[in-house]
Design a binder for these strands. Sequence first.
DNA 1: TATTGGCAGTCTCCATCAAGGAGTGCTAAT
DNA 2: ATTAGCACTCCTTGATGGAGACTGCCAATA
Lengths: 346, 346
Amino acid sequence: MLEPTPLDERKQQILKAVVSDYTVTGVPVGSQVLAAKYFIALSSATIRNELADLVGTGYLQQPHTSAGRIPTDRGYRYFVDFLMETEAATPGVRRTVRQEFESAPRSVDGILEKAAMVLAQVTENVSLVTAPEVSEQRIKHIDLVSLEPQSALIILVLEGNLIKQQVVHLDRPTSQDDLSRMAAMLNRKVKGQTAEELAGRLAQLGPDRGEQRRIIERVIESITTHQAQRQTVVLHDGVRNLLRHPEFVEVSRLEELLELLEQGAQLASILQQVAFEKDVEIIIGRENTSSGLRECSLVLTTYKMADRVRGTIGVIGPTRMHYGQVVARVRLVSQATSDVLAHFGN
Amino acid sequence: MLEPTPLDERKQQILKAVVSDYTVTGVPVGSQVLAAKYFIALSSATIRNELADLVGTGYLQQPHTSAGRIPTDRGYRYFVDFLMETEAATPGVRRTVRQEFESAPRSVDGILEKAAMVLAQVTENVSLVTAPEVSEQRIKHIDLVSLEPQSALIILVLEGNLIKQQVVHLDRPTSQDDLSRMAAMLNRKVKGQTAEELAGRLAQLGPDRGEQRRIIERVIESITTHQAQRQTVVLHDGVRNLLRHPEFVEVSRLEELLELLEQGAQLASILQQVAFEKDVEIIIGRENTSSGLRECSLVLTTYKMADRVRGTIGVIGPTRMHYGQVVARVRLVSQATSDVLAHFGN
DNA sequence: TATTGGCAGTCTCCATCAAGGAGTGCTAAT
DNA sequence: ATTAGCACTCCTTGATGGAGACTGCCAATA
């Protein structure tokens, strides 16, 4: 990504004006509008010359000969990297976010659903939230509950208080008391272990102890499938907001996007690549690898739950979006989510 | 709902032909098409007379003067009540359903998600699934896990193996060993109880035993909020399928529907009213109370998990849907879901 | 009496056309 | 370097007018 033609001050201002105006009005902006609204000192002819240059260098484009200009993906990129002013969230928005989180249920899932909902609401776009990802899934607690005489439920509490359940079949009828004793023993053995460590220990254990072995195997299986599954779980909300954007009157575009959202896996892999160091990451139009996102932008950041537990949160919307505002609001909701989740850390 | 004009045999056949043809082609059907495709023995003029009668009695309508006829809601109602032939699901569909359920994760949530997914796929409509509803929520198991010295996680296993978690603050630092002892004691006390029974016992307990009391209070709270919340949780899948139906090219209609789906509460109340005795319940167009569903039909039935655990499953689509096929497939997926969930009963 | 052929009438759909408007690029003057 | 002026291009909108699809009705028929 070279910048072969660095933009002089005036071209930057014009680019900024085009992006700003276009994101609000949705109409290609012409030289006259720019002269009247943003550059009273200049004539429209001068601006026309500059616009022609910006088209030549690939920052702007013309839908057709006698239309105004709209930004290219490259133009948006330059805008968000160098020109954009993030707007502080208004008190009204802050209040909305606060109130919604106050009424959120006291569970991780409930809070994340709330986050998706409120983010969709305040950005008027589709929100995305990945489930928290634990970098090393250590076992915190294990419990066994009798279901039938010969089957039991394994309950597993992982770091970050993520709970997994798994049914296991037993060789012989076992009472709840026996199961409880076994759980107590397992707790001493497995607490603080990861699935890998556990697998290593299992090898040492030898072929005896059939029942225990089977249970530990199921525990490992549960954790590993948990890891695999988490990669595909993405919450989203606010699809209805997209219908209000004129770029989605063509339903074919919407259909592609809905397919991405409903299947989830592809989006999940994008969201997982969001760097934890960076503040907010923006992916614009064709910078996306998925064809369904060619005309969309993503504004993403991360939230924290405990030191080793993290997730991604953000929005997806048309490339023509009010980046300054959206960035501020994504940041706000991410921060609020982290704050509320802080209580669930270990 | 009177039937002031019972239909003679030929009118029934014509109504059936109109509905069948219209649900497939999506085009208003005219007298010539009917004569050519369904009634070779009759002339188009005769059929015109019959069609005029059916319009007069409210079973059919005309979009405009020189157009063919389409069914009214009343026409669809008569069709599904008296004329419809449910088509047995094809081997291909059966195989799809079977395979999808085989690859489903071994958890209630996972299976229900799979059910929603596969139902959307085979009916090419939006699927709806309510979470299983437990008529009496009895506690099966309770466990306490230490988080910090002064806070703990309550894990609650209810009938049907539904798991709830809840954080509780403790008066004084308590070790995991103490918590385990307390859990064992609680287990003896609360096992098999419902929230109401527990509340009654709590009153007898008196003001002492602060810690235990607080925990039991949280347990009750957890169950009751669980009940309240369940009423609003509706899974859905397949919104992208709707975009293929020409009745949704107007996005405004889609928007209303999406809002219903994303908020969920209103839909949940509809789904909860589905009778458990009836086989499949069909709600057509304006029979719906929600204005967003004026042009939609719902095909709903129930699934079972254990004797006292039940949920609703079905689809929502345009009133112009292939009822015979959809009914058969809803029935199939419901049955398959019940079968897979049978292992999770108590 | 039920059915049918014929026909005028009605409405939609689609292509075509022209006028109006927005915005540009270019040229020549400042 | 900037600007006024102007010819040109292209989209948008609305009007017009057949072509096509069906109907409703009437008179003839079995």
